[in-house]
Design a protein around this nucleic acid. Sequence first.
DNA 1: GTTTAATTGTTAATTTTTTCACAACGTGAA
DNA 2: TTCACGTTGTGAAAAAATTAACAATTAAAC
Lengths: 204, 204
Amino acid sequence: MNKTPQKTVERLIQYRRIVQQMRDAGQEKVFSHQIARVSGASPAQIRRDLMGVGYSGSPAHGYIIHDLLQGIYEFLGLTEKKGACIVGLGSLGRAILGYFHEQNPVLKIKAAFDTDPAKTGIVFHGTLCHPASDMASVIRDKEITVAILTVPVEQAQQAAQQLVYAGIRGILNYAPVVLDIRPDIFVENRDMIQAVEKVAYFSK
Amino acid sequence: MNKTPQKTVERLIQYRRIVQQMRDAGQEKVFSHQIARVSGASPAQIRRDLMGVGYSGSPAHGYIIHDLLQGIYEFLGLTEKKGACIVGLGSLGRAILGYFHEQNPVLKIKAAFDTDPAKTGIVFHGTLCHPASDMASVIRDKEITVAILTVPVEQAQQAAQQLVYAGIRGILNYAPVVLDIRPDIFVENRDMIQAVEKVAYFSK
DNA sequence: GTTTAATTGTTAATTTTTTCACAACGTGAA
DNA sequence: TTCACGTTGTGAAAAAATTAACAATTAAAC
């Protein structure tokens, strides 16, 4: 039933953050062209994206920030925090954990996993590292639906299979490999090397 | 003059890696459907993407891996390694540095920068950390064209301006903010929080 | 030599995404 | 009240990306 384009969802997530900052700064209303200036999208794009959200602004005063935010939250299904976990506590995994330590309003990292016995049992940035063998039980107990995969590329496929078995619904994959898993599991790939290479290509 | 779609470039970078692995495994020829299986793209997509590259396969034996690779390399302008730098040696910056330490065939990280005096002068993963104030001279001396920006969000805009002033051509930005800089500088945003939120949305 | 089978390059069709354009609206000024 | 202004929501147009389709090609089988 997810027929909203991925691109639109990405932008709505961005608008959510931008608008929330405006609200924190005391602003109460906002026009599409204001969001446009900060987000890089065009005003028309923003209005079109917001069509899917169940809230309408007014030609007179634009969008009421409080109501707009609520609309986006509901649309994105973020009315309650979702549970996430990190698999692989290498330097990237720990860095991401650090990012989330300063509370994120929509996600909570509830567990970390690693195969290295030197790491298991230790709390990193407020999150306990479990042995990878406990994946299935911990993920079920803590009702975790999203996994961030930061293991070395050789272990990624196997770890992904464990995650799927444990009942995970989506994976953010940082390993430079396309995971071969059930098509109903959402996978987003974030190959960091590829990202730099892309910038290199367009930097001429 | 970059009229090849960004999406196509992203995939070509991916194909380059995949095909290179096949070559390392001793394979000499490859069909579009083989790349398709590993990359997730359709065979038609792959053939279309390869149209832009100046190498043609043959209906009989598909693509000669050696020649295909050379074609992609030339098309992507990777015949010589480009210089890159990392700005901000927090945990994410150091993690990325680690990724590149195992030699990347197309990019070389030639310098790192940080404002923290405790870090400057120290070598991380083989890369020397310079004080941020030396940015302009180091970037010019070492002919660095690409920057990876991993500073805290409050410092991102200012750091980006310094980079542009120093003559950088492209920025891979990990700070959750849209940089306001000259339009001829290529910017790729990689907001890590946004990525997880996106996965959360589609994981239902 | 001829046929078969498989794959390419490319054009055309389709689908998706973005942009345009404008009627409808609501506020504040006159 | 009426008008002018600036903005929204959305249908229509345009642009971009993907997929389908197929003639052309070539190696191998026969």
